[in-house]
Simulated assay, not measured.
Amino acid sequence: MLVLKIHSKKLAHFGCYRVNGTYFVIKYGQQNRNKGESMDNQEVNVELVMLLDEWDPFKIGKGNYDTEIADCVYAVHKIDNVEELAAKIQKIYEFSFEETIPMENCLSISAKLLLTKESGSCAL
């Protein structure tokens, strides 16, 4: 998976996605899908980024977690267990902010992230 933060609006039309003023290019796996198929990985990644950005666990405002979001999106694709993912998310944010997020909060976001990932792998 590749997550790039883009600072130039000129690059926005090259498959980038904008979240709170920041442009991201997220590439992971196959990009094409047929009618009736589920979201592709790129669309799932955009949804994951938006969920994590809206989460704002330390109430410092959206758009202040770019590095942590990239690490969490990567973890979502590697971990399928809610508890394991929650522990990983807790560690990611603790490393950056030197403050521990309650495990209940991490479990909640972990479940949402895995549900989003699953919606991308199952046809609707």
Rank of each mutant, 00 (worst) to 15 (best):
M1P: 03
M1H: 02
M1T: 00
L2T: 09
L2W: 07
L2Q: 10
L4W: 14
L4C: 12
H7E: 12
K9H: 10
K9M: 07
K10I: 02
L11C: 12
L11G: 12
H13M: 11
H13V: 03
G15N: 07
G15T: 01
C16Q: 10
C16S: 10
C16H: 01
C16K: 07
Y17D: 14
R18P: 04
R18K: 13
R18Y: 09
R18E: 14
V19R: 08
G21Q: 03
T22F: 06
T22Q: 12
F24P: 06
V25P: 04
I26D: 04
I26F: 12
K27T: 07
Y28Q: 13
G29E: 08
Q30Y: 10
Q31C: 06
R33I: 00
R33D: 03
N34P: 00
K35W: 11
G36Q: 11
G36A: 09
E37H: 04
S38Y: 12
M39S: 09
E43F: 00
N45A: 12
E47N: 05
L48F: 07
L48G: 02
V49W: 11
V49I: 13
V49D: 03
M50Y: 13
D53V: 00
W55F: 02
P57F: 09
P57G: 13
F58Y: 13
K59I: 13
I60D: 06
G61Y: 05
G61C: 06
K62A: 13
G63R: 10
N64A: 03
N64L: 04
Y65W: 01
D66S: 12
T67Y: 15
T67H: 14
D71G: 05
V73C: 00
Y74F: 15
Y74H: 14
A75P: 01
K78M: 15
N81D: 06
V82I: 11
E83A: 14
L85H: 05
A87E: 08
A87S: 12
A87F: 03
Q90P: 00
K91F: 07
E94K: 15
F95R: 14
S96R: 13
F97D: 03
F97P: 02
E98G: 11
E99L: 12
E99G: 05
I101C: 05
P102N: 09
P102W: 08
M103C: 03
E104M: 06
E104H: 05
N105K: 11
C106T: 09
I109D: 01
S110C: 09
A111H: 08
K112W: 05
K112H: 08
L114E: 01
L114W: 01
L115Q: 15
T116V: 07
T116A: 12
K117L: 09
G120F: 13
G120H: 10
S121D: 07
C122A: 13
C122F: 15
A123H: 15
L124C: 09
